[in-house]
């Protein structure tokens, strides 16, 4: 059940240049699953649409969620100026989340590129703390440079391999280069990041015959499945309109990589 409410900021920190970690007190913290997102609203009446941001962590006891985001424009810049005790309009939880139940007892590869890393941390933590069957989790994290974020937290709950665009840390190249270089073996892959990265992950999974789930981004208006603004091309008829255009906000954002067209 999602709600829209006024949430108070518990804390905000900068984790790297232009990357912020925002903790909000919300009523729905106990219901959030890794891969789900929330809509954040600015208080500027000329910028009305929600900004979708993935949940990077949730603390049911404290009643809080953590969002990690990159300043990319007006809205995210506005969010970055919020301080403890400020209030913000938030709607959530939204979307479907990763099918973590499929990872029970498996070797899991998490692939996060850039600002796709935060939801991977929430997957890694959930798998480390709540899986019934033991899982082994490797996280391949792709950064622009050695100005990393969330790396220590990932290392606390998973094996981590790193790729950087400029070669200043780990493998010089893409996350898939890092996966190959380290000979990572996996039974299932969860991924979030820019589309070219997701394409490469999908191809890698297909080549190895590994089930793979990807989290997609699209421009949104309602965020709840009502406006059909945020579609992704699918291989089979989508559940809403039966026309192979699934709603990223409601039918996703997580899709079986085989089912979505990433071209």
């Amino acid at each position: 059940m999602s709600v829209k409410e006024r949430a108070y900021v518990l804390s905000q920190d900068m984790c790297a240049e232009g990357i912020f970690s925002l903790v909000l007190r919300v009523s729905f913290a106990g219901q959030v699953c890794p891969g789900q997102f929330v809509s954040l609203f600015t208080d500027d009446k000329s910028r009305l649409l929600p900004r979708p941001i993935s949940v990077c962590g949730a603390d049911a006891d404290e009643g809080s969620i953590r969002l990690v985001y990159r300043v990319a424009g007006f809205g995210t810049e506005y969010f970055s100026r919020l301080q403890a005790e400020d209030a913000i309009e938030v709607m959530g939880p939204l979307g479907n989340g990763f099918p973590l139940e499929l990872a029970e007892g498996k070797r899991v590869l998490l692939v996060g590129g850039g600002i796709g890393i935060p939801p991977m941390l929430s997957c890694a933590e959930a798998l480390a703390y709540t899986a019934h069957e033991p899982v082994s989790v490797t996280c391949a994290a792709g950064y622009r440079s050695s100005d990393t974020y969330l790396l220590e937290e990932l290392e606390a709950v998973s094996e981590v391999i790193v790729a950087t665009d400029d070669g200043s840390l780990g493998t010089h190249g893409t996350v898939i280069d890092a996966v190959r270089e380290n000979g990572v073996a996996a039974d299932i892959i969860f991924a979030c990041g820019p589309k070219p990265m997701l394409r490469a992950v999908k191809a890698f999974a297909a080549e190895r015959g590994i089930p793979c789930f990807v989290s997609l981004e699209e421009r949104m208006a309602c965020g709840v499945g009502a406006c059909l603004g945020c579609v992704a091309k699918t291989e089979r008829p989508d559940p809403h309109s039966l026309v192979k255009n699934a709603r990223v906000c409601a039918d996703g954002p997580v899709f079986d990589a085989k089912e979505v067209d990433l071209t």
Binding site: L49, E218, R219, C230, V231, S241, V243, N245
Partner: peptide, 12 residues
């Protein structure tokens, strides 16, 4: 059924 247009379909 109508397929509609490709994304992006909305802009602020």
């Amino acid at each position: 059924p109508w397929e509609g247009n490709p994304a992006p379909r909305v802009a602020e």
